[in-house]
């Protein structure tokens, strides 16, 4: 177990290293940040001064070496644009995105698993067919369009929910949270539903196909031959088997929810990290981009570690590779 964790940590460090290198070179290739930062009318001397201040006068490998040395001490650089530490900028925005992503994931799982189970148990019923047809819509409708339609319907026509912004928040553990503030959920609901729709469709389809497959297994027939109540057959024998693929996929999808909620955040003017990333890329604010991507890789690593642990807990046949196996 300890070996497993150590191995995972080492892997994560390698990935982080390669990632930082790629992003560094990548952003360098896009353009020179100085063009964005310095007034075009500035003198060559001014430009050189700014470049020297930001360390942009050095060759790329020296810049990278400095970044690496600082990063190992927990300093991911200072935003060219804002003049504040890049990590600080991101962490300030992170709760908004996390809150949105977790809400979306909860909606997807809490609705998706029961609906998928139902559709899987009654594949030929009207309800089952409707759920499956609906899940195809969830897959195929573009997120931005659904977002706009949600705003049109619930904000413009019905006037039930606000169309954008984060609304009231309450401080907890030094960060701002919408759900803790009275009425905060009203601002969260539409973007969360919008973000959840695709994942909801995914969870429904996974659960449905898993259920149908499980029902064909011999152990289901044996469970029925034992005279177990239907509640127990579905709730324990089926559910525990289908949770294995669902946990894997949902876990990894949680990463994409955090990393790529950009579209939803833009539509609903949600002040999360997706919006920050877009701005930083257009402004060539390299420290923020690098810090953002490193953080995302880190979060991904954590999630996949959690998925592996849950997976091992759910499926007794899986043993976490400690020593020999790769």
């Amino acid at each position: 177990m300890t070996l497993f964790l150590l191995r995972r940590l080492l892997q994560a460090a390698q990935v982080l290293f390669v990632m930082s290198l790629l992003v560094f070179v990548g952003v360098y290739a896009i353009g020179n940040p100085l063009d964005m930062l310095v007034d075009p009318q500035a003198t060559a001397a001014d430009t050189a001064r700014v470049a020297a201040a930001l360390g942009l006068d050095q060759p790329l490998w020296v810049q990278y070496w400095r970044f690496l040395a600082n990063a190992l001490q927990g300093d991911l650089g200072i935003s060219f644009l804002h003049g504040t530490p890049a990590l600080h900028l991101i962490v300030q925005r992170l709760p908004a995105t996390l809150e949105l992503a977790v809400s979306a994931l909860l909606i997807a799982v809490l609705l998706g698993i029961p609906l998928g189970l139902w559709a899987g148990l009654r594949p030929d019923s009207f309800g089952g067919r409707t759920v499956m047809a609906g899940s195809i819509l969830g897959f195929s409708l573009p997120t931005f369009w659904v977002g706009l339609m949600l705003i049109m319907l619930f904000s413009v026509h019905l006037g039930w929910l606000p169309s954008g912004g984060r609304g009231p928040t309450r401080e907890f553990l030094g960060l701002e949270w919408s759900l803790l503030a009275p009425g905060g959920w009203r601002h969260l609901l539409l973007p969360a539903v919008n973000l959840a729709l695709f994942k909801l469709a995914l969870v429904i389809r996974l659960t449905q196909s898993g259920t149908r497959e499980a029902l064909l297994q011999d152990y289901m027939r044996f469970a029925r031959a034992k005279g177990l109540p239907a509640r127990r057959i579905v709730g324990v024998h089926v559910l525990k088997n289908i949770m294995i693929p669902v946990v894997t996929v949902v876990g990894l999808e949680f990463g994409t929810l955090i990393a790529f909620s950009v579209v939803t955040e833009s539509i609903f003017a949600w002040p999360g990290i997706g919006k920050l990333l877009l701005d930083s890329i257009t402004q060539l604010d390299r420290p923020v981009v690098v810090a953002y991507l490193l953080l995302i890789v880190f979060i991904y690593t954590l999630i996949s570690l959690a998925v592996d642990l849950i997976y091992a807990a759910l499926d007794p046949r899986v043993r976490l590779a400690g020593g020999q196996a790769a």
Partner: peptide
């Protein structure tokens, strides 16, 4: 029937590798 199955009438199946649920002790 549910009360009868596994109580008065029991059934055993062909493949022992498949009749027990793999994820339950």
């Amino acid at each position: 029937w549910q009360a009868l199955r596994g109580d008065r009438i029991a059934m055993i199946f062909q493949d022992p590798m498949l009749t027990l649920n793999p994820v339950l002790r």
